Amino acid sequence: METAPEPALEPAEERALERAGAVLAAEAARFAALGWMRGTSGNLSVVVGRSPLRLAVTASGLDKGELTASDAVLVDGDGAAVSGGRPSAEAALHARVVRLTGAGAVVHVHTVAAVAVAERRPAGIVFRDLEMLKGLGHPAHDEDVTLPVIANSQDMAALGDRLEAVRDPRMPAVVVAGHGLYVWGADARQARHHTEVVQWLLELELARR
């Protein structure tokens, strides 16, 4: 039995997806160069529509340092593909983060520091009295800021429930134990900046211990 072809995107949707794909390719190349998206690991997304919710997500199984503008898949508010290609298996979690936080972009990278520190701080990682906290919108002194840690799962609905249960609106990130780091922001640029700041904090924590 033949399957029905996917519906074609409207021209405006095609253009939006291509623009988003170019952004995702550029951001992925940055993270890959830092060694945070080794091999085909990690995934990125940006919101391209809110009503209904639509995200452009990096396609599954591709080297993140070699993506092009065409290597993005359009998904709906549940992370299911709307048109073209196979999205990351974690697209559903990206969509969940966007629905929970109102973010415009989500970054998922696999860094050694995130996994190593989460092993030592499974209840969450507390930061205080650091200038870099300003990069997350916090004062540099006299305030505790916690980066939550959640247990890993291959079930994106379960993982999303865990993220929702521990999410602190003051911290645009969460560590998935034994897996990596999820970070979000208003757009791809802010999500990248937040990722760089959180990774710096994790590397400092790792160096201290």
Rank of each mutant, 00 (worst) to 15 (best):
E2D: 11
A4M: 13
A4L: 14
A4Q: 12
E6M: 11
E10Y: 12
P11W: 12
A20P: 03
A26V: 05
A29M: 10
A32P: 04
A32Q: 04
G35Q: 11
W36H: 13
T40D: 11
R54V: 02
A56Y: 00
A59G: 12
E66I: 00
T68A: 12
S70H: 13
L74D: 00
L74S: 02
G77K: 10
A80I: 04
S83G: 07
R86V: 12
S88L: 09
A89G: 15
A92D: 07
L93V: 13
H94P: 12
V97F: 09
V98S: 04
L100V: 06
V112Q: 13
A113Y: 06
A116F: 06
E119K: 07
R121F: 07
R121M: 04
G124V: 01
G137L: 03
H141R: 14
D142N: 14
L147Q: 03
I150K: 00
Q154T: 10
D155Q: 08
A158C: 03
D161I: 05
R162W: 02
P169K: 09
A173T: 05
V175E: 01
A177Q: 03
V183L: 08
G185K: 06
A188K: 00
R189P: 00
H194D: 05
Q199G: 03
Q199D: 14
L201H: 02
L204H: 07
A207P: 10
